[in-house]
Design a protein around this nucleic acid. Structure first.
Length: 493
RNA sequence: GCCCCCAUCGUCUAGCGGCCCAGGACGGAGCCCUCUCAAGGCUCAAACAGGGGUUCGAGUCCCCUUGGGGGCACCA
């Protein structure tokens, strides 16, 4: 791979929520830019005002920031080639559309949408490929300009050659060939004066000196249109990469709305900002998506910096990839375990607060080592450690029963353990474990029978962080009070 | 229907003609550790879609078939 500095852009349209596919495209753009010491640009492709969604641009920006994919030029921070929002660049597209018309490579088309729709249906009925029928293709330029000047509604279409073939190179796939007979006179400028993607993106990439285009493979079919527009204008061609699509977990087809909803049901989502709320970390998400379409032989746990150092366009994978949420869970848990205690504490604190707990930082820092290797997502801190911040716990009586022991026997065990702990001036891991273990042994019980009762008594739950460490954090008086209460409950069974 | 793309374990992938009776990771199974749940360690099962070529030799190159995906808008 050539390592000279690139200029790449992530160019989403603000028409919906930021999903995994966008995130991966952005990530690869970012990696290539950072790897080569190049520039990463954010450009908003908002030329479709019908599909424009309020707030979508902000979610895109938030998503990139959350993931840590900082861009060097963009709508909110500016840059030398702005503006970076296409609706703010209309005159530029106008100018180049005119240039194409001037060069005889584009033409005014006055056909109404209704007529075109009719033609399309006719063609389909006759089993022909739907395509522009060329009605306005040969209107003399002066006449066309006169009609346009008179305010007649029109679009500008690219005048695609009628015969022969055209070729273009995608780095992942090599050379691709199309017959011109299969290509259409694509609309470049809409009747509202705004450009379509096919013009806008090419113009902006040229004006913004983009050297490498990384985009989704849904653009592969219009790829020949794009290279023809660029060549008609005599512009230098960027390096092209069309990333594979993400398939739903079953591998059968693209992620659908229904599928997306299904994912949410079991705690997952294909939307970046949902993942944040669900307790996923940028590290986990990034590590997960970077490996979908780009493979490494070994050592697949990577930080963003690792990815930058290792990324290369040489082994990008063109085949579609099925989304596998189990793998996200794995990477998320792995990165959580890799975090420094204070870092992790800072990240789970908002999740406790979201549940309404008042969080003491010093206490939180003591809890982190106890739960770190148990968290798959950050919000798992609630089931594992929520009780640390509760004034009281409410164990289920039947949960207090030890395996193979009657209520009376369980109560007896609890009473004896209580006595042992009451004899201690303070309850800590080192002070509490030896005498309790000794008791277990002398009583001929299984450790779990004794510790299980205490766990439920003290934490209120059957699954918890390690018992002695937990008791130490909770504190002697509270621990004793809770065990006394458990003794009472057991006696009443 | 037409055009284009893709094809290695269930999934994500390594492999760019001999280093591969195919490596890693997730998931699965088993064992160990163990106060619960995890984490961790060890072990196992699991793939080159099929058929033709090319070559001394093919997962790797070519063709066909099959399967999958994307697209066929005044949407991106």
């Amino acid at each position: 791979m050539d390592l000279s500095p690139v200029r790449v852009r992530f160019a989403p349209s603000p028409t919906g929520r930021m999903h995994l596919g966008s995130a991966r495209t952005a990530l690869y753009c970012y990696l290539l830019a950072r790897r080569t010491g190049g520039t990463f640009i954010l450009r908003i492709e908002d030329t479709d005002r019908k599909r424009y969604v309020e707030g979508a641009e902000q979610e895109l920006i938030d998503g990139l920031h959350w993931l840590g994919l900082d861009y060097d030029e963009g709508p909110d921070i500016g840059g030398p080639y702005g503006p970076y929002r296409q609706t703010e660049r209309r005159e530029i597209y106008q100018k180049w559309a005119d240039e194409l018309v001037e060069r005889g490579r584009a033409f005014h088309c006055f056909c109404t949408p209704e007529r075109l729709e009719q033609v399309r249906q006719e063609q389909q009925k006759n089993k022909q490929n739907p395509r522009y029928d060329g009605t306005c293709r040969d209107i003399p330029l002066e006449e066309a300009r006169r009609r346009a000047a008179n305010g007649e509604k029109h679009v500008i279409r690219f005048k695609m050659p009628r015969e022969g073939q055209t070729k273009a190179v995608d780095v992942m796939r090599g050379e691709i060939t199309w017959e011109y007979s299969q290509l259409d006179d694509t609309v470049l400028l809409k009747s509202d004066g705004l450009p379509t993607y096919h013009l806008a993106a090419m113009v902006d990439d040229y004006e913004m000196k983009v050297t490498h285009v990384i985009r989704g493979s849904e653009w592969l079919s219009t790829f020949p249109v794009h290279v023809n527009v660029i060549r008609a204008l005599g512009w230098p061609e960027p390096v092209w990469m069309h990333l594979s699509v993400f398939l739903k977990p079953s591998g059968k087809g693209k992620m659908s709305k229904r599928e997306a909803a299904e994912a949410v049901k079991d705690g997952h989502s294909i939307f970046v900002m949902d993942l944040k709320d669900l307790g996923y970390t940028p590290e986990g998400v990034l590590n997960w998506i970077v490996l979908m379409g780009w493979g490494v032989a070994e050592d697949d746990v990577m930080s963003l910096d690792d990815m930058i150092n290792r990324f290369t366009t040489d082994n990008l994978n063109p085949s579609p990839a099925a989304i596998n949420f189990a793998k996200l869970d794995h990477f998320n848990g792995t990165h959580i375990r890799l975090m420094q205690a204070d870092d992790l504490a800072g990240r789970i604190k908002p999740f406790f607060e979201r549940e309404g707990y008042r969080v003491d930082n010093a206490k939180l820092l003591k809890i982190v080592p106890l739960i770190r290797e148990r968290l798959v997502t950050l919000d798992d801190c609630i089931p594992f450690a929520g009780f640390f911040f509760k004034d009281d716990v409410s164990p289920l009586p039947q949960d207090l029963l030890a395996k193979d022991l009657s209520p009376a026997q369980s109560a007896d065990v609890a009473r004896k353990a209580l006595a042992i702990l009451e004899a201690l001036p303070e309850i800590s891991h080192p002070s509490a474990e030896p005498p309790l273990r000794q008791f277990v042994e002398e009583a001929g019980l299984h450790p779990n029978q004794v510790f299980g009762i205490l766990r439920v008594a003290v934490t209120g739950q059957k699954v918890s962080p390690p018992l002695f460490e937990s008791m130490e954090i909770i504190g002697r008086e509270t621990v004793l009070a809770r065990i006394r209460r458990a003794v009472d409950m057991l006696s009443g069974l």
